[in-house]
Amino acid sequence: MPDTHTIVRVTGVTKNFKLGSTNVQALKGVDLEIYAGEYLSIMGPSGSGKSTLFNMIGGLDKPTEGKVFIDEVDIAQLDAFELAWLRNRKIGYIFQTFNLIQVMTALENITLPMIFAGVHNDAAVKKGIELLDLVGLHKRYNHKPQELSGGQQQRVAIARSLANDPAIILADEPTGNLDLSTGEEIIKLMSALSKERGVTIITATHDYKMLNASDRVVWIEDGLVKKVENRDQLNIDVGCIRMA
């Protein structure tokens, strides 16, 4: 990895949810540094706070305490317009449920963020077609999401997340709704994209297949970072999991 500067810095982030009179502490003080261009997986059991952490990093929710910096900018300080700009240009989102806009075709889904960015329609369409080719969806431009399989929809979503050449792609359980082999293809695609394009990819998952593609893995348990491992430390663990 050339020039490993920190692109996301999470410091002392806690998040409380009030559910009636009870208070759920989903994050209990998370510190994390994510480097530009790496493929980072966040692993942890269900309810450990992965999605919550994601929403903080993605600027979709605000921490109760602590700060999230993207490119050393404290995102709590951004106004509505700057946040929209951040979501539009800096971050690409990939969801477990794909979240394509149902009334639009695959191509229109991909061009939408470019239109928001002020890209001219023809240029957006041209790039949209390139991106669809890149994710392996040739000649599927004019299909509506309902006419595509889950794996194909997720490919469209990946293409969409790349539309404005974001620095960061956030993928919360991107393979959660896919079968094993389709999930594996999606992971391969994402890891290839991260290598080719130098995009920082951050994924949350319980999927151990994800580990092979990751440069680093952050283990979260009960709202706290338990350990952070590099790829070389990982192989041992994966082996253990396989044996178990």
Binding site: A80, A84, R87, R89, Y93, N99, I101, Q102, L112, F116
Partner: peptide, 16 residues
């Protein structure tokens, strides 16, 4: 809801 939220994740402003 989901469509609106997705658009906002893609950078849509309230006014859109």
């Amino acid at each position: 809801f989901r469509e609106i939220g997705t658009m906002k994740c893609l950078g849509a402003l309230d006014s859109f």
